[in-house]
Design a protein around this nucleic acid. Sequence first.
DNA 1: AGAAAGCGTAACAGACTTGTAACAACAACA
DNA 2: TGTTGTTGTTACAAGTCTGTTACGCTTTCT
Lengths: 224, 224
Amino acid sequence: MHILIVEDDAETGQYLERGLREAGWDTQWHDTPQAGILALSSHSFDAVILDRMLPGMDGVDALRLIRAANVDTPVLMLTARTSIDDRVEGLEAGADDYLIKPFALSELIARLKIITRRPKHVVEETQLMLGALTLDRVQRTAHRGDVALDLSPLEFKLLDYLMQHPGEVVTRTILLEKVWGYRFDPKTSLVQTHMSRLRAKVDKPFDTEMIRTVRGSGYVISAQ
Amino acid sequence: MHILIVEDDAETGQYLERGLREAGWDTQWHDTPQAGILALSSHSFDAVILDRMLPGMDGVDALRLIRAANVDTPVLMLTARTSIDDRVEGLEAGADDYLIKPFALSELIARLKIITRRPKHVVEETQLMLGALTLDRVQRTAHRGDVALDLSPLEFKLLDYLMQHPGEVVTRTILLEKVWGYRFDPKTSLVQTHMSRLRAKVDKPFDTEMIRTVRGSGYVISAQ
DNA sequence: AGAAAGCGTAACAGACTTGTAACAACAACA
DNA sequence: TGTTGTTGTTACAAGTCTGTTACGCTTTCT
């Protein structure tokens, strides 16, 4: 899950980044609405945290711009104001929720979880299984049989995405979009490199390979 | 499936080419409407991705030209504009769908699948079977009995096309058009060569031949 | 029978793909 | 502050794919 933070106050921005990262989200923080909108056009986000008061442009105007561009990423507004008029203005401009400063991080996380909940109410599995391979999203651990796999955060996300699509070709471009949040070709062997590292832990120490390369496309994970 | 991309921005064009190729489509990218229209007359496409803003000619005008020439290939428009007027103009000129930039590749692929779906409620099979021969389009694997066939991407496409037309003579010209996207005679033994390679994997290791040559026409695949 | 056309396949070369090691930048942490 | 782990980039080797050419076999036709 990728969260875009648009907040001009450095202290709040860093606090949000750290808090959300620890909760397992990826964040990108920008301190101007212009930079935020630019980020939205080149990366894929699951939600936006938008400050109401921003330098140069009101947060509500920024939101209107975003919605006018047909971007329907959920937006949570942060506001210091309390009047009903202000809330209404934000919600009418297309915000999904708002939070009044100062706020508790736990409440922010709870509200983020609500607005990022997929409309198709896909039940978020906490544990994925594929043959002898298991992945626990709560504990952030992965096992193959009894062996614990010591994965880096990125490797974990990569394996997580693959395991959500067992027996299906997952292309490199889709991985870039879903795992890295990229909407461009990095023109490097980024995916290959990390797939190589993941395989070194998931496949190499065992006799059967679960990750197969599909030349010209990407990779498939499957049992057996 | 062959997709024509008409997009003047090189980065977007290459990104589209890569993403669609990995997803199993063949692409041809042109950066001017003139080149795109020319390509339409010499090659066979299942869909066109057309940028709204093109050098020298508006994408909508290019689309009108295409439709005026009685080409009814599905067209998906890419537009940076958002007003309802622009959408209506594109759709009225004959676009089948539109997508507002910036877009996620996964959404583009989903929309392409919709507009290329054949009008006659033909359900896209994910698995083809013919006697002991099976072909899985999702996993991109082919088997004859229990034996996995290790096919190159081109061989896979060739077998896929043959298996869509069991017991039917498939001519070389049709293969050139459907598998290679050619509308001209390469004057080489291109088809023969690849058919030979395919047979070496599909027929040679087994006692019965499934691919038969029809002299003067092409090939037939059938059980027994 | 002989000629011509159709076909199969081996060999080749060039282009492209892929996996991996090595390195640099950076953040986390004690 | 140094250490450790993570991540992205570069470089390179190995392997794969694909179109062309060449050549021999088979079929067809006169």
